[in-house]
Each structure stands twice: as C-alpha cells, then as structure tokens.
Write a protein that binds this DNA or RNA. Structure first.
Lengths: 157, 157
DNA sequence: TCTAAAGAGGACTGATTTGGTCCTATTGGG
DNA sequence: CCCAATAGGACCAAATCAGTCCTCTTTAGA
C-alpha cells in the first residue's frame, strides 16, 4: 500500500458547493455575507455551508468577522484566488503518493519507490493547471447577479 | 447535490498498483506476463492484481491471451499509453460534475448550472495534462530491470 | 480428447471516507 | 448583558473502495 489515502485531486461535492458560494460572493467584492444567506443562495443546507465556509476561512480564502453583523468576505480579489487553493482548503493537499519528493514516508521497496516518484510529474502538471484557473474565471457566467438575487432557493438535482 | 459521485480525478491505490505493473511490463515490450508473475514482482496481492489487469485489458491497455501459456501484454508501446488512459480504465471517466458539456443531467437551478459548467475548464486542463504523460515517462527510472528481477517480493509500507 | 493453466466476469464483504448534523465555546456590537 | 454570528469538534449514516472468491470460458499440449 503506497498511496496515503488521498487522491491526486478529488473534486468533492463540498468543493463544488464552495465554488458556487464563492462565485456568489465574487459578484460583489467587499461585501460581508452570513452563512445563512450564502446557504440560501447556493441551495446548500446551512450546517454544511457553515462547515465549508469555516474551512475556506481556515484556508485564508475568506476572512471571517465574528459577532453580530459578522460574516465572511473574500480575503482577496477573485482573480487572485485559484481553484487549487479552494481544493486544498477543503480536501487537503493536492496530493500525493508516498515516495514523492518531500514525503518522509517510505514504501520499503526501493526500486518501486524510485519509479513511483514519477507521480511527481503528474502531481505537478495537475497542480499547475489548477493554479492557472482563478475564481474569477469560474465565476464569469455570473453576468447578471441581480437575476440570481431574485431566485431564493430551490431543490437541486 | 451536483457531482455525480466521481471525482475530477482520483488516483486510487489501484491506479498506483497498475502503474507499477505496467512499468514492469514496459521494460520488455512484446513479452507476455501472467497475473501471478506480475503480482509477485509488484508486491500486490494476486487477486487484486488480477482485478487490475482485467480492467486494463478491458480498457485496451493490455491485450490478454487466454488458455495455458496465456497472460497479458502491452497493447501498444509504452510511449503511446497515457496516464489518462490508465486512470480511465481503472476509475472510469476523468470526470465531472453534472452541468458539464455532454451531460444529460441537470441540476434544476439554471443560474447555478451555467456557472458550474466552468468546471469544464478545470476538467480539460487536467485531462490535457494527463494525456501528455505516458507510461514511458513514468517508467523511466527502470534503468536496470535486471536488478528488479532479482528482488522477489517484500512487504510494502 | 482430456487436462491443466490461464483469463473473464461478477457477487460479496469489511473497512474507509464522505457528506452532513449538532453541540458547545468564543467573539463582538448595540 | 444579550443576541447574532463564527470556531471548533464530536459524531453518525450512507456511500464508496479495496480486496477476495467463486464459477465459467478459452486454449495449449500430452
């Protein structure tokens, strides 16, 4: 067994939700959004939305403001937030078999290990691709935020 | 819920094993390898190895020969087998939220759906990256196959 | 033509992992 | 102080995965 239980990259549901919420926030930068509001607008159940937002804050993608009148705000302009960061914030490092540069784990079979190191190339290729795509790119079709505003919630799927 | 239960790409343990086995086979193209032999050499339990090899054959990465003296052989030169193909053979399509080009699924919330379509860009970037890396690239460090030959099996991890 | 060696295919199971919920702090404005 | 928010975990049910096994088919060769 060699992989550390994480995939090179998993784009989980949570990540998808996160992008939806972040895109919504990107429509008006500088504004502070509460969990409740974001949950409604993105049709994600509130507790789950809360969990996602906390992770994003921990990942320095959002800045949180506690107390009343609190909420979340993009930590940076959307064009400076990469998809890679979002994924990392929610699913952990974009990552990685053992036998990978920097890893202290060791598979014990040297010959295999050296070969496996070549996943590095794959990892890097994917990381590079994801670091090139920003939240601003993802949010582009949000041309008419006003329209979205008028659509409260609705069951997904 | 929007993701179809599959990740954009999962590099599972099975995939890792597969690459190990395939690299071994790439050392001498044209040779036919039995499941038992490949399992031994790659330190993967035989039933599991068998499962992987069957999947690779179904994915046209290996050609199988049944009956006695049978076994598996690379379907093409290693330089023509991409990492993308290997992943697809084992984990299914590199893929994909609903609301993605070609998908017939529909999330029901148009505004969200249109935005989610932008995962396409991510999907494409990753697919491109993976289609650029071949088995030959992954197998490179196998400079001295003879050495590997003399190391039967050993517990991993 | 029979036998044994090999793969094909699929059912099944135990263990992880995920998504999702909830409860108890902590923070801060009015 | 009180209420509105977030922080941070613990926790659970359901889905998924790795791994095993059993039966069937194919084929070489004695």
């Amino acid at each position: 067994m060699v992989l550390l239980g994480r995939y090179v990259i998993r784009l989980s549901k949570l990540t998808d939700y996160a992008v939806v919420m972040l895109s919504y926030m990107a429509a008006r930068e500088g504004e502070v959004y509460t969990t409740a509001r974001l949950a409604q607008r993105s049709a994600v159940p509130e507790p789950t939305a809360a969990k996602i937002l906390k992770s994003l804050a921990r990942g320095s993608i959002l800045v949180s403001q506690r107390g009343s009148n609190g909420g979340y705000e993009l930590a940076r302009p959307a064009a400076e937030i990469t998809v890679a960061e979002i994924i990392v914030a929610l699913d952990g490092p974009i990552a990685l078999a053992a036998c990978v540069e920097g890893s202290s784990d060791h598979c014990g079979v040297e010959q295999l290990c050296s070969m496996r190191g070549n996943w590095n190339r794959v990892n890097r290729a994917i990381r590079d691709a994801l670091e090139d795509i920003t939240l601003a790119d993802m949010a582009v079709p949000f041309v008419a935020p006003a329209v979205v505003e008028t659509r409260p919630e609705q069951g997904l799927r």
